[in-house]
Nucleic acid binder design. Structure first.
Length: 462
RNA sequence: GCUCCCUUCGUCUAUCGGAAAGGACGCCGGGUUUUCAACCCGGAAAGAGGGGUUCAACUCCCCUAGGGAGCACCA
């Protein structure tokens, strides 16, 4: 049997990080078992859904490299089929019309709460003669749920979860205006799409019980469920925008690489022994449901950044250069682009995200005289500037402007001055880059070229 | 309020009745070094509490506490 999974977000804004991980788990599992991964947009709530939000989901998934099969199913377009199934349920006696008014329902809930019972619909129209229906009231359709026993979900992550019948009431399938509810839509769509495995957040665990009842009522095969724990913010509370509940696009903007994101997200709530850094291929090979943990995981930016740094170091130089190219305005000249590429192997070791990488490379395009950051300023005291003044004529004598020649000259100068190399190199670095951090100063000088390098030193020397 | 789920270093986690409870991030210290970073080495750091079960519990059961989720004619 081919395993079929799906990711079914509602388009209410963007693909947030929790959704991204759910999608990733589904995708990894599907790839692992050689199944089919489908996408369904749950846009039945037209007010909260928007076209842009649907695009954001597509973009987010694509950025993460999660490909789905075929076109996404738009749930909103399947309403007729949902209604059709409701009719079948009505016909088979598994559903009934409910003529309760909203006021009646709230009163029912409030009373139940007061009496310490869960706020449930009491099933007053379940067996009542429809002839007693108040005139002019449009009925909703409710499922005739089992009143006794319990619904058992054999969850692949949570284990066997039992929900007693009295915890669940006769849920609405069709609203009085004829539109299908989420529960109805999900079950019908999952069935029609041939979904065999439902991997989603635990917030749907109790929904699963209701959905199982519906599957049973229709005599459909119940899918395998795997409810994965949620992601919390660093403080353990619900993930908020302030600390991580951002759209994946935000992570892209923050300069994270998709492969780092995949690795980080995969490792959040799932593990394979001590494996920490692994390729997507490796993740596919290893990923399985039993490896998913049961407790919520906190989002840890430090770890993400560390991972991103690792992937940055491994990334192809040209690719990185292209990725940060948009950070330069005006655009890099061919000459500057070449310099960037030359220094990339050193530059990428010093950055945790693409924006940092771009910032560290900015000195390549900076116009003279450079603006110095505070740390660079501190390195260029009067004495240092005077020293650079003495170094200048020596550098001028370097015939072949390459790393070896420059280094030899500077080292000789340092010795003559009785200074440690670091004491000479730091001011040079500050003069060349305006920062206290950069690739090796000799590399930087070579890449900058004689004129530019000497010019920058001249600007600050005395 | 009711129901369900969760609980190992600060964080992500390994462990699947018998180990000095392991790894990773972060942190601290050291090395290398031309700064920072990278890299290498070392260190501090954990079984929520209480009862059981067992020859033996982090591992199984119960209770308590804490955390989370769900309880709509939202999705």
């Amino acid at each position: 049997m081919t395993i079929v999974t799906r990711f079914a977000p509602s388009p209410t804004g963007y693909l947030h990080i929790g959704g991204a991980r759910t999608a990733l788990f589904n995708w990894l599992y599907t790839k692992h078992v050689g199944g089919r991964f489908l996408l369904r947009i749950e846009d039945t709530d037209q007010e909260r859904s928007s076209k842009g939000a649907v695009e954001a989901i597509y973009d987010g998934l694509k950025w993460l490299g999660l490909d789905w099969e075929g076109d996404a199913v738009l749930q909103s377009q399947r309403a007729p089929r949902h209604r059709e199934v409701a009719e079948q349920l009505l016909a088979s006696g598994n559903a009934y019309h409910c003529y309760c008014t909203p006021d009646e329902l709230t009163a029912m809930r409030e009373l139940a709460m007061k009496e310490g019972r869960p706020p449930r619909y009491d099933g007053r129209w379940r067996d009542r003669d429809p002839k007693e229906a108040p005139p002019g009231v449009k009925p909703a359709v409710r499922l005739k749920a089992p009143r006794t026993g319990e619904t058992i979900i054999d969850d692949q992550v949570q284990g066997e979860v039992r929900i007693a019948a009295d915890q669940l009431d006769d849920m609405v399938l069709l609203r009085s205006d004829g539109t299908p509810t989420y529960m109805m839509a999900v079950v019908v769509d999952d069935h029609d799409m041939g979904i065999t495995h439902v991997i989603r957040g635990v917030d749907h665990l109790t929904n699963a019980a209701r959905q199982v009842q519906l599957f049973r009522a229709m005599n459909w095969a119940v899918p395998v469920y795997a409810h994965i724990p949620l992601i919390h913010g660093p403080d353990g509370a619900k993930l908020s925008k302030r600390h991580g509940a951002l759209g994946v696009q935000e992570y892209a903007k923050m300069g994270y690489l998709p492969e780092a994101m995949r690795n980080y997200l995969a490792r959040l709530g799932w593990s394979h022994g001590d494996a920490e850094i692994f390729s997507t291929e490796q993740a596919i090979e290893w990923f399985d449901l039993p490896g998913i943990g049961r407790s919520a995981a906190r989002f840890d930016f430090d770890k993400l950044r560390n991972l991103n740094g690792v992937y940055l170091q491994q990334a192809d130089d040209d690719r990185l250069a292209n990725l940060i190219a948009p950070n330069f305005d005006p655009a890099l000249t061919p000459d500057q682009a070449a310099r960037l590429k030359t220094l990339m192997p050193e530059l990428k070791k010093r950055a945790k995200d693409l924006n940092e990488l771009a910032d560290n490379a900015r000195f390549l395009t900076a116009a003279r005289p450079l603006s110095l950051d505070p740390k660079a300023e501190a390195l260029l005291g009067a004495e240092a500037r005077a020293m650079l003044g003495r170094l200048l004529p020596i550098l001028t004598t370097v015939g072949d402007w390459k790393v070896a020649g420059i280094e030899a000259a500077v080292r000789a100068f340092g010795e003559a001055e009785g200074r440690k190399l670091g004491d000479v190199a730091q001011p040079i670095r500050a003069a060349l880059t305006g920062k206290a951090t950069s690739p090796g100063v000799f590399d930087v000088m070579a890449v900058l070229g004689r004129d530019d390098a000497l010019g920058r030193i001249t600007d600050v020397a005395r």
